[in-house]
Design a binder for these strands. Structure first.
Lengths: 343, 343
DNA sequence: AGCCACTGTGGAACCGGTTCCACAATCGCG
DNA sequence: CGCGATTGTGGAACCGGTTCCACAGTGGCT
């Protein structure tokens, strides 16, 4: 491969001048610049980013740590991050972090610290305080999606409020027998998303004077098959069947709707279902949902990182920024039929 | 940050010995090694991969170019690639390539060439011969998933055979009015997947003496909503409705099933549906499908890249390796009911 | 005893850039 | 005309490692 010195020799200038001509920094005569550019083009010169990073100390590369790639929310966030990084001229190095804690340590110790990332974006992962400190100690900007995390800039929707909002939607329609299908705490290592949505559900129920005991809550995997299997189990018995389900994610909601159809239960006539996410399939399944925009969250996180990376001015404080949501009412929610209640 | 020279000073050895002790290459006395390791641990030394890459010429980093993240097949391939790369001690730099050709050039010229990848894995992207030559000229191993591409090692299922197989399955059940919902050529920049699956369909139909004219084929976006919308349009009219649909992907098949249910058409009693992929939702929808294993394809591609990267022995020839498939018969296919045919 | 192979170590060159600094030439202006 | 500011250029140091080479000590063998 050709190096800068080759370009310099061909253009009959010094390495210093060649470097200045190519980077655009410092004084270079037009004539010299033209010669350098022509020489570079002639031999197909490309800079070595390794050499560049070595001397400048920055690598124009951001690490993204994410637990899933194949779930809608995470995939969308990743797409948003990717497009924003490319636009900013940065590369994206991807680390998927499974629940396996040994692998987790390895990624953290080995890759993130050792490798050439300028910053880290953690999606849906609850970082320990020791891990946060480690990243801060390295001077690497770090932002999280799905916070809040102490000492870090994080973005996410307000899960408690979101859950309360959709629960209130069901309550205002007249439902009283409402169940929540939520995530299992141990399933993945993300934030307190699950418990917060459960808390919001319970708050809203309590505020309306409704029962939200243990019978009103089932855990499942937050995916379409997860919603399907819990739906099949819970909805099969007409005597205990609720009139409405608040699903912890749209994927669970869709699985529940499919299960209900399978059982011959009409949605929304006999069962209302509401989710959280704004999944691309929500429209197809007429799903009422609290929509968020994961791609936008990803882009926002990138901008926050860039602020701190470029950062002449002091960066914004490292706090949680709630992300807006909007309730999209579709055909999966309706007032409970008298017969359904009686049944 | 602490550098190797700091470690060397603290351990009272030369940089050369410190480097040998840490890398494990060359002769170092046990005593010296211990001192170096202790010194490194004490000051929290981590190597600079930039310096390392600069001198060794390899960066332990593989670039992955992929058109979608959020479609099941691509997400699964990506997961497979990621896990295999991490296991091999390599990083994964992600480039999403949209259909926009300007962006495509930019990624190619700017990032792939300029940046620090040791190899490139291209997923579902048809590379031009000029692009293949460019990568070869750089001496970077390159493998594709979803081939074949001339001059490149590629992995994919045999799309013609796969399409013929599922079509034969429908034919052997007694169906004669079969339609194919396939991908639109212009929709994305992947390989000739769409046209090959169409060709396989037409071959199988012709071999059975069945009509596979233009009326037997509809294009759509290869996603669940895509299958849903084409399903709603095509299945609405009972007079022209086929008794079986071969969907170009499981996502299209699932969308078609949902559309059929919506129209009150029973699957499989009134309509058989078969897909290709082995989607995670296939089981839930009782979908008969030709299963492939995208994650395994990703892992295989990584191994192929590693072979060439480590490669003392001459690497395997750069040809297409067909990937195995298996027909998983579930409840979405059945012999056509006499009534359905008459209707 | 003499020679060679092996082990262990440090000095120095090198990878490919960026940037500091010294120096020269030109220019504007009092 | 003289002087300081501006422009343009090259030499050399440096980023942080790896590795070649020279050299010294030790041991095994004839």
């Amino acid at each position: 491969m050709s190096a800068l010195s080759d370009v310099a020799r061909l253009a009959q200038v010094s390495k210093a001048t060649a470097s200045r001509a190519l980077s655009g920094r410092g004084y270079v005569s037009d004539e010299a610049r033209d010669r350098v550019l022509a020489a570079a083009a002639e031999i197909g010169y490309v800079v070595s980013t390794n050499a560049q990073s070595l001397v400048t100390g920055s690598s124009r590369n951001v690490g993204v740590v994410i637990p899933f790639i194949n779930r809608w929310y995470f995939g969308d966030v990743l797409e948003g991050i990717e497009s924003a990084l490319i636009a900013a001229g940065y590369d994206l190095t991807l680390y998927r972090l499974s629940a396996d804690s040994a692998e987790r340590r390895r990624v953290f110790d080995y890759f993130l610290v050792r490798k050439r990332v300028d910053a880290v974006i953690a999606v849906g992962i609850e970082l320990a305080q020791s891990e946060v400190r480690m990243l801060h100690a390295l001077g690497k900007p770090t932002v999280g999606i799905g916070g809040p995390i102490d000492g870090m800039a994080t973005f996410s929707i307000d899960d408690v409020a979101a859950a309360a909002l959709v629960t209130d939607h069901l309550i205002s329609l007249g439902h009283t027998r409402i169940m929540h299908f939520g995530g299992d705490q141990s399933e993945q290592m993300d934030f307190r998303v699950h418990s917060q949505r459960l808390a919001g559900f319970q708050q809203a129920m309590a505020a309306a004077g409704l029962d939200a005991g243990p019978d009103a809550f089932r855990t499942t995997v937050l995916s379409i098959p997860g919603g399907y299997s819990v739906g099949l189990m819970v909805l099969a018995d007409p005597r205990t069947r609720p009139t409405a389900v608040f699903a912890g994610s749209d994927e669970v909601a869709i699985g529940t709707i499919v299960a209900a159809r399978q059982l011959g239960i009409q949605v929304p006539n006999q069962l209302s279902v509401v989710g959280i996410d704004g999944h691309e399939l929500a429209d197809m399944f007429s799903l009422t949902t609290l929509a968020q925009d994961p791609g936008e969250q990803g882009r926002l996180a990138v901008h926050r990182v860039m602020e701190e990376l470029v950062g002449q001015q002091p960066a914004a404080p490292r706090t949680w920024t709630p992300f807006p949501v909007r309730l999209e009412v579709r055909g999966s929610t309706r007032a409970p039929a008298a017969s359904a209640v009686a049944q």
